[in-house]
Design a protein around this nucleic acid. Sequence first.
DNA 1: ACGGCCATGTAACTGGTTACATGATTAC
DNA 2: GTAATCATGTAACCAGTTACATGGCCGT
Lengths: 184, 184
Amino acid sequence: MALRNALLAALIDRESSGYDLAKRFSASVANFWTATPQQLYRELDRMESAGLLSARLVKQEKRPDKRLFSVTELGRAALKTFTAQDPKPTTVRDELLIQVEALAHADVPSVRAAIRTRMRLSAQRVEAYQRQLAEILGTRTHEEFLATGNRIGPYLTLQRGISFERENISWGELALDILARRFP
Amino acid sequence: MALRNALLAALIDRESSGYDLAKRFSASVANFWTATPQQLYRELDRMESAGLLSARLVKQEKRPDKRLFSVTELGRAALKTFTAQDPKPTTVRDELLIQVEALAHADVPSVRAAIRTRMRLSAQRVEAYQRQLAEILGTRTHEEFLATGNRIGPYLTLQRGISFERENISWGELALDILARRFP
DNA sequence: ACGGCCATGTAACTGGTTACATGATTAC
DNA sequence: GTAATCATGTAACCAGTTACATGGCCGT
């Protein structure tokens, strides 16, 4: 039921196909929600049946046809109801940190490599989030945008994503330093 | 299968009951994994059947008997195997950020209240993590500990938790500032 | 000729959530 | 007397994951 709300938030300003959404979920939405394409397709169908979304078929030449979903009035109302309720506590699942927690009993070279991989991923995400921030800012400064801009929700979630990924990187540096000292 | 690894990491240095683990999962382990008590009891049973854990029954007077689980040799081997594999990408589910993403279509007073609640929770967690850090440091400075200490895995995951929760708090301040300006 | 992108879907399985139940002890 | 803590569990349900399938287009 909560993937449902993430989809409403993702679709409310922008009509999208399942395929588009899968990309957005691995790019910007990944910041606060993750879902596989299969989950999306299934949930989109259910939401259409429930009247929260309407779908229109767009025929394309040279590529497969696609279904573009947009939020209905009923969907808007459901989103508003959701924002009026207490959000559930955040859940996180991070296998890398399990490996680090068990460091004394771990295969250290693998863990070291995994930390490096994580740092690269985080760096890519910082860049991707910053590109999106730049897009919503346009030619305005942060100050100008904050005074008058209209996408302040996405602005805030992107800021959270950027600081999260930056902390990932500096934590990774600390971890690699310590590993270099203690498991040379 | 991955809750399984989180449990092995949590139990490897410390025999615990299901009840103990439920508390640790909402305190320190919450930092990188979340699970409900029911999940834990179910998984602990499965892991015992699989020979990864051994359980001993401790009879108590004035409180219910409990089962203390510890990691077997087979369990140790499974943990090592896990640390040698590529960790899956982190998954996050944060309903508060969905509400913020949809800010322009949201019930703003509720979202504001939810941000405040989140900030309080984060502050409590920072304190809890710091108490645990202080415990593993003992009388040593960070430098001394990093040169000779033996719980460097937990040290690192606690540091990650602390910086994450601190970022939550300063992000919350930013968000409340912007809301005060734009939705007075 | 081969891999990546576009675009959607089915089916089977595993994992996570929620509701409910029990019952004694301790602290206010 | 009421709520919190200790301690475990069953059952039903819902959500998330993995494997597999299809098929044309585009670039190298």
